[in-house]
Nucleic acid binder design. Sequence first.
DNA 1: AATGAAAGGCGCGACAC
DNA 2: GTGTCGCGCCTTTCATT
Lengths: 152, 152
Amino acid sequence: MGMDAIDRKLVELLQADATLPIAELASRVNLSQTPCWKRVQRLKEEGVIRAQVALCDARKLGVGTTVFVAVRTNQHTEEWARQFVQAVRDIPEVVETYRMSGETDYLLRIVVSDIDDYDRVYKQLIRAVPLFDVSSSFAMEQIKYSTALPVR
Amino acid sequence: MGMDAIDRKLVELLQADATLPIAELASRVNLSQTPCWKRVQRLKEEGVIRAQVALCDARKLGVGTTVFVAVRTNQHTEEWARQFVQAVRDIPEVVETYRMSGETDYLLRIVVSDIDDYDRVYKQLIRAVPLFDVSSSFAMEQIKYSTALPVR
DNA sequence: AATGAAAGGCGCGACAC
DNA sequence: GTGTCGCGCCTTTCATT
């Protein structure tokens, strides 16, 4: 699965705009359409490119508020973890979840319309799975949000 | 900019897979192609759908490690903020940045290949702008990552 | 605001070089 | 790797209700 400079450039371009036609991509990497198309095809087959999605405006969808939730548990069991993972996957307002090192066991990013809406999601979460400690931090402003991963 | 149930369904579908052809979308929302196409067009014009991008596999791009960085400053000036925003926007490894309420002033999500790589980005960041306090937390595992916002 | 038909463009894949 | 070609699907528009 060796990616050369051209592959990386294609990934960079498609991460920025997946609507670029093959002809446009080809000229940007100084290739003709056929080899360019084959490269993109290969990147998809290999799973380097794993999806093509529409990104929406959070405010316009009424979920302009981001809350980070640090979670601690006192039940370090397989069963609890399985339940927790299921719970966050089932709640669409939870858009990101990470198992952390250090003090907090899990870090969640949640998008909601306002504080009342957050309370609703919070209750939904603690009802689904017992949590030892929950610490919520509100984001005042989203400074940067990029789905484009660095390719060097 | 009133979104009805059909619009929301379209947004939901396109957030999951933007390669769905109009004909397929149309049948899923029980419309024919033309009105379905017009709705999607309108959602793009209004900026509800703001981009269409390729999502990549972080591991396969060699950036499988996520680090959350909590930043505190002691210079609460316009000029410092401007510099900081520019710095995080210019560093591609910084994929998300939020201005927070509470203890930490800013929270960054950074993707890197390993700890050494993180050290490189860390040095790049503190060289670009003076930081009063920096606290790094490593993610052990990404449990959930969704670019799809909830639409209810 | 909906439908069905039709035109034009582009992705896709095969071919020779 | 490059260029060419053709099929078919998909986007986009038009006429109509």
